[in-house]
């Protein structure tokens, strides 16, 4: 029990530290925001904002995926480059490092989504018919993306071509999240009946990704 409390304290300390560092450095958050904004504006202008809801949903998740890649890829690598990763690993429990980073990534992706989804809806002149479903879908999708993204970022830290490797490794892992997310986002936009099984599937896959990340991180 004491060990669990210690780990929780470490997780909180790491999340707080990452927030302070990212607010002072701003590079990762700015990269994500700029990619998302540029991609949204370019797609909106090139299609005159007239896109089928299915395609619109897919475009939203493609933008979130690649914008996340721009920011999340450096989660561990920035620390490795700065030489702080060995110090962090020495003083903190490995699982606390993983979950601290994962929560920080999730919070960053939520910030990105809060910024980009309204922008996306305005530029594509789209409405959300089912707000609750939209929020639930986005949250479940971001949890899965955070878990897979954090583990992939840890895996690619020592890779030479980490920039190219990160999306290649991340895409197949997150595909089972994106497919139901796109269907559910479409349903949230149109107000059509949705398959509750897709939400359950996303929850289960999120749980699987978080568990797998926790188990595999000890071997890195």
């Amino acid at each position: 029990m004491k060990s669990f409390v210690c780990r929780c304290e470490q997780v909180v300390a790491i999340v707080r530290k990452d927030f302070v560092v990212s607010l002072r450095r701003r590079a990762a958050l700015a990269a994500m925001m700029m990619f998302a904004l540029t991609a949204t504006a370019a797609l909106s202008l090139s299609t005159s904002g007239v896109v089928e809801p299915k395609i619109l949903s897919a475009l939203l998740w493609v933008i979130i995926f690649f914008a996340a890649g721009a920011g999340v890829a450096g989660t561990f690598d920035d620390e490795a480059q700065a030489g702080t990763l060995p110090t962090l690993k020495l003083y903190a429990d490995a699982q606390a490092v993983l979950f601290g980073k994962m929560i920080h990534v999730l919070a960053s992706l939520i910030s990105l989504t809060v910024f980009i989804v309204p922008t996306f809806l305005i530029l594509f002149d789209a409405d959300v018919a089912d707000g609750l479903l939209m929020v639930a879908t986005l949250l479940l999708g971001l949890i899965g993306l955070s878990a897979a993204g954090t583990l992939t970022a840890a895996l690619t830290t020592s890779a030479v071509a980490k920039g190219g490797l990160f999306p290649i490794l991340l895409f197949p892992v997150t595909l089972p999240i994106f497919l139901p997310a796109i269907s559910l986002t479409e349903a949230a936009l149109t107000g059509a009946a949705f398959d509750g099984g897709s939400l359950v599937m996303m929850m289960m896959f999120d749980a699987m990704l978080v568990t797998a990340a926790s188990i595999l991180y000890d071997y890195l």
Binding site: Q10, A13, R25, A82, G83, T84, P86, T87, L90, A92
Partner: peptide, 20 residues
């Protein structure tokens, strides 16, 4: 090879590692 956080102040570095 073990570095401290350049983006944190001296006091923040101390407090962070002690908190861990």
């Amino acid at each position: 090879e073990m570095k401290l956080y350049g983006a944190l102040t001296g006091a923040e570095n101390l407090a962070f590692f002690a908190r861990l």
